[in-house]
């Protein structure tokens, strides 16, 4: 059955957005990522204009992450305190990122810088997570070199002021740490035009040393607020949110997020990390392929900016 989308100005088989929503919602509930890095290109592939695809996806993520946060909160896997600090950082970083884009565009060649940042970030994060979780899966019982390796960084982190304990995560950090790294992710996310879940998750795992299951719930909580802000701005300034498409997507994604959250509890932290790493690497390869293969069309619709 086909439905007409009033803002995208196109018609779509409803099974496509519902199916995509289900798949991406599942990933969201499992890994605590919004899945924009998957959803937006897929929507464009199915004929949705790029600006509408990105804006509508963020509307959909509001639903998926509400559903996912709720599911994780029920089992005590959301660190609200940490989430709030990250949010503050992310918000500041987002503002900085928007300015950074303006500077890049003024300098010309912005697309090159953005694409390269994206590919490098995905590649580095994916590769690091893959090998790290592979190693920790192997050396599960020995548990040796970890603290020694991290001592430099963790010593520095411990020396910072405003140390505070995060009960849910079972870690103690300076409040500045999540704010600084949150804003770092915020800058990159704004520059790359993505939610940044795939960056935030590794930051929480490797720098904040939070347990993987709490990471997923907290990341979703943080994404929820980011996407509320983005949806509103997109609807208000670009008129690019398609309500009908968002409803179709969220039918799938809200259920997917619940299933993902339930399924995630059955997996170990390392297993979750390694699957996420593989997905991130596959996306990286796909982007690199798109960059190097000759495109069939040399012209495309202009984006928002």
């Amino acid at each position: 059955m086909y439905l007409y989308l009033p803002v995208a100005l196109t018609s779509i088989n409803i099974l496509i957005p519902i199916g995509l929503g289900l798949a991406v919602g599942l990933l969201s509930g499992l890994f605590g990522v919004g899945g924009g890095f998957l959803m937006t290109p897929l929507l464009i592939m199915f004929g949705i204009p790029s600006t509408v695809a990105a804006a509508t996806d963020s509307n959909q993520i509001v639903a998926a992450s509400t559903s996912g946060t709720y599911a994780h909160w029920k089992v005590g896997n959301v660190d609200f305190k940490m989430g709030l600090y990250l949010l503050v950082g992310g918000f500041v970083g987002g503002l900085g990122g928007v300015q950074a884009i303006k500077v890049l565009r003024a300098m010309g060649n912005a697309d090159f810088v953005i694409k390269m940042t994206y590919v490098l970030m995905l590649g580095i994060v994916g590769t690091y997570m893959f090998f790290e979780s592979l190693a920790s899966m192997r050396k599960k019982k020995t548990e040796t070199s970890k603290p020694a390796k991290e001592s430099g960084l963790s010593k520095f982190l411990k020396s910072l002021p405003m140390q505070t304990h995060f009960e849910k995560s079972g870690v103690t950090h300076s409040a500045l740490i999540p704010i600084i790294f949150g804003s770092f992710v915020g800058v990159l996310a704004a520059v790359m035009g993505v939610g940044g879940g795939f960056l935030m998750v590794p930051v929480m795992v490797y720098i904040l040393r939070m347990p993987m299951h709490v990471v997923v719930g907290t990341s979703l909580f943080q994404i929820l607020f980011n996407c509320i802000e983005v949806t509103f701005l997109q609807a208000y300034t670009n008129h690019s949110v398609d309500f009908v498409l968002a409803v179709l997507l969220l039918i799938g994604s809200t259920f997917g997020a619940q299933v993902g959250a339930v399924f995630g509890r059955k997996l170990k932290g390392e297993q979750l990390k390694i699957i996420l790493a593989v997905i991130v690497l596959v996306v990286t390869v796909k982007i690199v392929y798109d960059l190097t293969a000759s495109p069939s069309l040399l012209l495309s619709m202009g984006g928002g900016h």
């Binding site: 509307n59 959909q60 509001v62 509400t66 409803v247 969220l250 259920f255």
Partner: peptide, 15 residues
């Protein structure tokens, strides 16, 4: 925009 967000929040909680 507000309706879109509220609908998404409602759907998330509802499910």
């Amino acid at each position: 925009g507000a309706i879109s967000i509220l609908a998404a929040l409602g759907a998330g909680f509802g499910v």
